[in-house]
């Protein structure tokens, strides 16, 4: 009786510690939301830890007074295209890396691993010129292409992990039944790797959605800005209204968060498997 009683106290203690820490970790999220719906002026002291009222006024104002609707659409275009391009390209590449062991695949393995560790700060200096020469500068399409290249190595690696788990006998059987190898892949393997596909679609969407550094460098005109660039531009203003800023932040965060929660389980599994198994 005694040791189990002691054990219960210990678990209760750690449980409370965990809850308190979870609250601290969650606080910035909480504060973003509270600041966006607070009725009293942001410029009051002390701040209300629990909002003194609830209003969506900041949300209406930010849409009315700023180009945020346009930036939202731009961001959807960039993130959607990034997701589409990366998924299509990664599917084929990951399949090749998973099923073939040739000179070509080993060269590409090195290329993909190597390109993952290059510093973006050095890349963007010449890329700025290359994009101007190719007519991709200041274009949402160009930005999506760049975002795709940056996320591809991760997307391919993740998807390859999913393909590796599908036994090769399944497609060999389909080929005996008359499929070509690609036919067997698209009709038999791909449907089995659906969770992996969903992860790659969502992950590349999120990375295109969140991206700031390339957008800051490769997009010039305000009309073509995406949310990440538009939002940070408010900061320099003298009469910055933080409650509107936080409203914009909430709007920007929600789509990324939904996609994230949707694939969280697979993403976590894929990531940890990759990291632990190397």
């Amino acid at each position: 009786m005694n040791p189990s009683y002691k054990e219960k106290i210990v678990s209760a203690f750690w449980f409370i510690v965990t809850l308190v820490l979870a609250a601290i970790v969650f606080f910035p999220y909480y504060w973003m939301f509270v600041s966006s719906v607070e009725t009293e002026s942001m410029f009051s002291w002390p701040p209300h830890l629990v909002p003194s009222g609830f209003t969506l006024e900041s949300y209406w104002t930010i849409f009315e007074e700023r180009a945020i609707g346009r930036w939202f659409i731009n961001t959807v275009i960039v993130a959607g295209s990034t997701s589409l391009f990366s998924t299509i390209i990664a599917i084929n590449a990951a399949y090749a890396l998973s099923r073939f062991k040739t000179k070509t695949t080993s060269v590409f393995t090195v290329l993909i691993l190597f390109s993952q560790l290059l510093p973006a700060a050095l890349i963007v200096v010449p890329l700025f010129v290359i994009f101007q020469q190719l007519g991709l500068y200041n274009s949402l399409f160009g930005l999506a292409i760049a975002d795709t290249a940056f996320i591809l190595p991760v997307a391919i690696w993740l998807l390859k992990g999913f393909f590796d788990q599908i036994p090769v006998e399944i497609e060999q059987q389909a080929m005996i039944d008359g499929c070509t190898q690609l036919g067997a892949f698209y009709r038999v393997v791909l449907p089995l790797a659906l969770p992996g596909l969903v992860v790659v679609v969502a992950m590349s969407f999120i990375s295109g959605w969140d991206e700031f550094f390339l957008a800051r460098t490769l997009i010039a005109s305000q009309d073509n800005w995406v949310l990440s660039v538009g939002l940070t531009s408010f900061r320099g203003e003298y009469t910055l209204d933080w409650s509107q800023m936080m409203a914009a932040a909430v709007i920007f965060t929600i789509p990324a968060l939904i996609f994230f929660l949707f694939v969280q389980r697979y993403l976590v599994a894929g990531l940890s498997a990759g990291a632990v198994k190397g």
């Binding site: 695949t105 050095l122 010449p126």
Partner: peptide
């Protein structure tokens, strides 16, 4: 076949990542 499947990756990574690094 692998070359066809991997071709687009090669083009993108070289254009957006490798070539700029070499230029840098």
């Amino acid at each position: 076949l692998p070359l066809w499947l991997l071709g687009p990756v090669g083009v993108l990574l070289i254009l957006i990542l490798i070539w700029p690094i070499l230029q840098g």
